Simulated scan of single mutants.
Amino acid sequence: MPTETHLLPATPEGVAQASAVLGAGGLVAFPTETVYGLGGDARNGRAVARIFEAKGRPSFNPLIVHVADVAAARRIVRFTEAAERLADAFWPGPLTLVLEARPEAGLSPLVMAGLPTVAVRVPAHPVAQALLTAFGGPVAGPSANPSGRVSPTRAGHVMDGLGGRIEAVLDGGACPVGVESTIVGAAGAPVLLRPGGLPVEVIEACLGAPLGAAGAGISAPGQLGSHYAPGAAVRLEATEARPGELLIGFGPVAGELTLSATGDMVEAAANLFHLLREADARAGGRVIAVAPVPDHGLGRAINDRLRRAAAPRG
């Protein structure tokens, strides 16, 4: 039975309605500075199960828990010295920390996907902050799109992908960062689990040491090999369009669409998912080719998403 999905304005009344939906065990998509998240009460096993169902998400892929502030995070995870330093420097913001979960926090085991750790972050977006404050509890919030597909950076993207599957979308406009949060495993020696909206170089400067590399297996969201994928096939490092291709340009490589004509990484990150969707809609059977993007700063996150979008699909 389809669910009626309500588009709510980012007003105090809309936030109150969204909070009430979460309190009743429903699902609400909400804006963060990175992408739209699909929120459910992280303590409600049925609500969390519905997140997996709505997304068609593999149950072994853990979810990020969003909280309003560091004090709320302390109630659900055990902080290490490195986590203290990173949270102090970068929260609220596009950084997720994976830490040992507190059993007394009452999180649904589905949130951790069977792991002893949980991914947690404090988003900076004012609408997300208003919702989390109004709700007063931890909100599990993966990206608000069908699993493996392009992440949503506008309310319309969410409606296109999840309309009829969730109760509400809180419309906060376009997400300013445009790629998901950087994920750092901080339960032990800090390791990079996923590049994202906070450049790795900035994190390493804060810690005074390089981040380690992630081991094998799924320990955080966004680590599946094929992810963020449009319907069309994707070819990377394209300097021109071949016959039967639609080219997304960057900098000096002009395309039918462009991430940033000036080579601005911030603009490219903010445009990435929206343009993948636009290209998919225009492709008409063509392959989507993407121009080279330098692999430093935000470019590392952009290239990570593009490699996953282009990966062979199971």
Rank of each mutant, 00 (worst) to 15 (best):
N145Y: 05
T117R: 07
V120Q: 12
A124C: 10
P138T: 13
L115P: 06
V139I: 15
T117M: 10
L131G: 11
M112D: 08
G106T: 00
N145Q: 00
S147D: 04
G114Y: 11
T133W: 14
D160T: 13
T153K: 10
D160I: 06
P126M: 08
G106R: 05
V111W: 09
A155D: 02
V150I: 07
P152Q: 10
V118G: 01
T133L: 15
A155T: 08
V139M: 11
P146K: 12
S151T: 03
G156M: 13
H157L: 06
G156S: 15
G161S: 06
A105G: 05
L110C: 06
P123C: 01
V120E: 11
M112I: 07
T153R: 10
G136D: 13
P142G: 01
L115I: 07
G148A: 12
G148W: 03
G137T: 10
A130T: 03
G114L: 05
A113F: 02
G106S: 04
P146S: 12
V118S: 06
M112T: 15
S151I: 09
V158N: 10
P116G: 05
T133H: 15
F135C: 11
P152G: 06
G136S: 11
A134R: 15
M112H: 09
S108V: 02
G114C: 07
V111A: 11
P152I: 00
A119I: 04
G137H: 13
P142F: 04
G141T: 14
